[in-house]
Simulated assay, not measured.
Amino acid sequence: MKFVARFVHILLWLKVAVSPALLGAFIGGMICFALNEMVLPVITICTGFGVVLGIIWAEKTRRTVGLSKFHGRLIGHPEVDGSKSK
């Protein structure tokens, strides 16, 4: 059971860390789209910057709030779970 808990914890950490990396790749792609040419170093730099920010964010979240509590707050938000606020 400890293996499953560790695996879920790793997946939650990756979920937090990868999101800025994807955003960086998207921004790099938009820059290349604006330049009308594919410049691989631009995409690589933007993605790398996103990976570094994602690692920092995931570690800060893990140490301060906790990954399970962080995701619980996101999923339990009234706008996400579909309940109507009064």
Rank of each mutant, 00 (worst) to 15 (best):
F3W: 10
V4Q: 14
V4W: 13
A5W: 12
R6I: 04
F7M: 09
F7P: 06
F7A: 13
F7W: 12
F7D: 00
F7K: 05
V8T: 12
I10M: 07
I10A: 04
W13E: 06
W13T: 09
W13Q: 05
L14H: 03
L14A: 09
K15Q: 06
K15E: 02
K15Y: 04
V16Q: 00
A17D: 04
S19T: 05
S19V: 09
P20L: 03
L23A: 08
L23F: 12
G24I: 02
G24M: 02
A25T: 10
F26G: 15
I27E: 02
I27R: 01
G28T: 00
G28W: 01
G28M: 01
G28Y: 03
G29T: 08
M30W: 07
I31Y: 01
C32F: 01
C32K: 00
C32H: 00
F33C: 08
A34G: 13
L35P: 00
L35I: 04
N36S: 04
N36P: 00
E37P: 02
V39H: 11
L40C: 03
P41W: 12
P41L: 04
T44E: 06
I45K: 11
I45C: 04
I45V: 15
T47K: 02
T47Y: 04
F49V: 15
G50K: 01
V51L: 12
V51M: 08
V51K: 00
V52T: 11
L53R: 01
I55R: 06
I56R: 07
I56T: 14
I56G: 09
I56E: 09
A58P: 05
A58V: 05
E59Y: 12
E59S: 13
R62E: 10
R62P: 04
R62F: 10
R62G: 06
R63S: 11
T64S: 00
G66I: 10
G66M: 07
G66H: 07
L67E: 00
S68G: 13
K69P: 03
K69G: 02
F70T: 05
F70M: 07
H71K: 08
R73Q: 14
I75Y: 13
H77Y: 13
P78K: 13
P78V: 15
E79I: 15
E79G: 15
V80D: 09
V80M: 13
D81Y: 13
K84H: 10
K84F: 06
